[in-house]
Amino acid sequence: MAAGGDHGSPDSYRSPLASRYASPEMCFVFSDRYKFRTWRQLWLWLAEAEQTLGLPITDEQIQEMKSNLENIDFKMAAEEEKRLRHDVMAHVHTFGHCCPKAAGIIHLGATSCYVGDNTDLIILRNALDLLLPKLARVISRLADFAKERASLPTLGFTHFQPAQLTTVGKRCCLWIQDLCMDLQNLKRVRDDLRFRGVKGTTGTQASFLQLFEGDDHKVEQLDKMVTEKAGFKRAFIITGQTYTRKVDIEVLSVLASLGASVHKICTDIRLLANLKEMEEPFEKQQIGSSAMPYKRNPMRSERCCSLARHLMTLVMDPLQTASVQWFERTLDDSANRRICLAEAFLTADTILNTLQNISEGLVVYPKVIERRIRQELPFMATENIIMAMVKAGGSRQDCHEKIRVLSQQAASVVKQEGGDNDLIERIQVDAYFSPIHSQLDHLLDPSSFTGRASQQVQRFLEEEVYPLLKPYESVMKVKAELCL
């Protein structure tokens, strides 16, 4: 049975990233139509530049190519590739079939990587351009969430054990800070992308030097003109047959890092959902379990974690691919890159769409948070109580021993009897502590235990987050809708 299948058929496997999760716009960027249309555009740009620099290419040939950029006979191309065992030459023939007058000058002087690699770089750039505003929107939604809850005390956790208090907004800023680093890295790697350009079979530009009869300047002009037509500021000066596969490492490393950030955020949300302090959106008709109707599973956060793990592992592909590119190139890269580049971007696209949807509907339960604080705060307040007693004339050592005994009794009630923490009640009825009984409410005010959390939130948002989001103001209103 021949390899390949009808990918629109229910009898043929289709990647869930495309069929179930990723956005239509990201799927289109990695589609065959987008790819092969870009090949034709690159052939047109090459012909236009070659004509401008004096090669015998007519206006009629150029116009014929322009008129057929979208006229792609995919069936013919597939048949040609089956016959020739070469995808680029299959599309040269297919393009030439609908451009008979231009057929002889299509791909003039070029090698397969002229269309293959340059198209990949265009796709990487455009895919990054799709991700950047999506990530900015996630940051914006979380920034709104953090600002609104900047002063809401909550129990902090280290080692997932109760620690000092923080605020809900401050905790959210930990998430935002990681995503801001990801946004900066995505922008950097996007701006650092260079075009492969017009380089020939081993990167020496020998074929173009021959076409222009040894004119170095025209060869350099050709490279520059096509690079500018493709919208790049610069091209690699040095290439082998391909652009260095280190570029793929750079791009997928940034995406993998984004995956790590999203995994951490969504894990926190899942843990908070278990504590009943916070939940992701839950639709009115949504079913959490087929057997347990009360369940409210954090399905979206779980999906993000599941896909983020996949995204983090994909960076190993370009690392290994770059390491086995012998001399000017081997074909070890080809099949692998067809999979890992598309999957990385479709996965990143999915987790950003999902995280935006989550961040637009996060639900906080202040009463649950308050109750958990009441359970733990008495123990945390013991040092403040000791200091207040010393100020009232008591002995630190005597007070410490009193607190120690009462704390152990209260802990026994919590752990052995399943009761509430009654340390404060014990202190309130103990005559030894009568000098500070009137101060206990103040000493137990949760806001006095959150330090500068709310001020940190305000400063972080104003100095770091809002300036970073400013270039994306025009796209901030787009909502994230999930079908599944």
Results as ranks from 00 to 15, higher is better:
A2D: 11
G4W: 14
G4F: 15
S9C: 14
P10E: 14
D11A: 08
S23V: 10
P24C: 15
E25K: 12
R33N: 04
R33D: 08
R33Y: 12
K35D: 01
F36G: 12
T38F: 07
T38K: 06
W43P: 00
E48S: 07
E50Q: 05
T52A: 13
T52E: 09
G54E: 14
P56R: 13
I57C: 06
E60Y: 10
Q61R: 06
I62V: 10
I62Y: 05
K66F: 07
K66D: 07
N68I: 06
N71Y: 12
N71G: 10
N71K: 10
I72V: 09
D73L: 06
F74S: 12
K75V: 10
A77M: 15
A78G: 10
K82S: 10
H86K: 00
M89S: 08
V92W: 00
H93V: 14
T94P: 01
F95N: 10
C99G: 07
P100F: 07
K101Q: 07
A103Q: 13
G104K: 13
G104F: 09
G109D: 01
A110K: 03
A110L: 05
V115T: 12
V115Y: 01
D117L: 01
D129T: 12
L132D: 12
P133E: 09
R137F: 10
V138H: 11
L142V: 08
L142P: 00
A143G: 12
A143Q: 04
K147S: 11
R149H: 09
R149G: 08
R149C: 11
T158S: 14
H159F: 02
Q164I: 10
T166W: 01
T167K: 02
T167G: 04
V168Y: 05
G169Y: 02
C172F: 04
L174D: 09
I176F: 03
I176W: 02
Q177D: 09
C180T: 14
L186K: 03
R188E: 06
R194G: 13
F195E: 01
V198E: 01
T202G: 12
A206N: 10
S207A: 13
Q210D: 15
L211Q: 10
G214M: 06
K218M: 12
D223Y: 00
K224L: 12
E228V: 08
K229E: 05
G231M: 09
A235M: 13
A235R: 08
A235C: 14
T239W: 03
G240R: 00
G240M: 05
T244P: 15
V247D: 07
I249E: 00
I249W: 03
I249V: 10
L255G: 04
A256C: 07
S257C: 09
S257E: 08
G259E: 00
G259P: 03
T267K: 03
D268L: 01
D268G: 10
N274K: 07
N274A: 13
E277D: 04
M278S: 04
E280K: 01
P281A: 15
S289T: 02
A291C: 04
M292R: 01
N297G: 01
N297T: 02
M299D: 04
S301P: 05
R309M: 09
H310W: 06
L311N: 00
L311G: 02
M312I: 11
M312L: 10
M312F: 04
T313M: 11
T313S: 12
L314V: 09
P318C: 08
A322Q: 10
F327D: 02
L331S: 01
D333Y: 03
S334M: 04
N336L: 12
R337M: 03
F345W: 03
L346M: 14
A348R: 02
A348K: 01
I351H: 05
N353Q: 08
T354S: 15
T354R: 02
L355G: 04
S359E: 06
E360D: 14
I369H: 03
R371A: 03
I373S: 04
R374I: 01
Q375F: 10
E376H: 05
F379Q: 03
A381R: 04
T382L: 04
E383L: 02
I385S: 03
I386D: 01
A388S: 07
A388N: 02
M389Y: 05
G393M: 04
G393Y: 06
S395F: 06
R396M: 03
D398R: 12
C399V: 11
C399N: 06
E401W: 12
I403V: 12
R404V: 09
L406R: 06
Q408I: 09
A410I: 02
V414R: 05
K415L: 07
Q416D: 14
G418Q: 02
G418C: 04
G419L: 14
D420F: 06
D420V: 04
D422P: 11
L423F: 14
I424A: 14
I427C: 09
V429W: 09
D430E: 13
S434T: 13
S434G: 12
I436Y: 05
H437L: 06
H437Y: 08
D441K: 11
H442P: 07
H442V: 14
D445C: 12
D445V: 10
S448T: 11
F449S: 03
F449Q: 04
G451Q: 04
G451W: 04
Q455I: 08
Q458V: 13
R459C: 11
R459H: 10
F460H: 06
L461W: 06
E462T: 12
E463H: 15
E464K: 03
K470M: 12
P471L: 15
Y472I: 15
E473C: 15
E473L: 13
S474P: 14
S474R: 15
V475H: 13
V475F: 14
M476K: 15
V478Y: 13
L484I: 09
